[in-house]
């Protein structure tokens, strides 16, 4: 029965649009002290997640990572697969069409917003804006790109920077 389950599961997984890697890339990252929460956080802000949960969500592949830094920082090194929504350069006026075109994701897709690290609150402000625009499944990875790199996780670099 175990063999039959394995054969059926691999076959269906290979054909399914929701298929996953057979061997997961989850890592237990020791040294994390839980999620970093800025002092400016409000009770109704989206939840803050730590590096372990961020890495797990990245490995699971369901969440979309959103980099709130400017294009230069994004291209120098970001979490693989992220999209760039530079909070400081958001267009004026109605943000809904802009968010829809950049994210190209349904409103209930999980979005994990991040920026550089603890000194940067762009992720917090962007997450609040996304929430106002009706995105329902948001999380803030306040450790950001720096904590991601500090734990030796893969970084996507679009250009070489100093």
């Amino acid at each position: 029965m175990l063999l039959a389950s394995a054969v059926l599961s691999f076959a269906v997984n290979a054909l399914s649009p929701n298929g996953i890697d057979v061997i997961g890339k989850y890592r237990e990252l020791s040294g994390s002290e839980g999620p970093i929460v800025p002092p400016t956080a409000e009770p109704d802000d989206p939840p803050f997640i730590d590096i372990n949960v961020a890495q797990m969500e990245h490995a699971a592949g369901q969440a979309l990572f959103v980099d709130a830094r400017n294009l230069e920082d994004f291209e120098c090194g970001t979490i693989p697969g992220s999209v760039n929504l530079p909070f400081e350069y958001l267009p004026e006026g109605d943000l809904a069409p802009y968010f829809d075109s950049v994210l190209a994701a349904p409103k209930d897709r999980m979005l994990i917003v991040f920026c550089s690290g603890e000194e940067c609150d762009l992720s917090l402000h962007l997450a609040r804006n996304l929430k106002l625009q009706g995105y329902t499944d948001l999380a803030i990875f306040f450790g950001g790109a720096r904590e991601w790199e500090k734990f030796g996780l893969d970084v996507e670099r679009r250009k070489q920077c100093g």
């Binding site: 029965m1 389950s5 599961s9 691999f10 061997i23």
Partner: peptide, 15 residues
């Protein structure tokens, strides 16, 4: 262990 999570998530439901 992390490398077994997806394997378990695939096989267990069919079992």
């Amino acid at each position: 262990p992390g490398y077994l999570i997806n394997l378990m998530a695939l096989i267990l439901p069919w079992l």
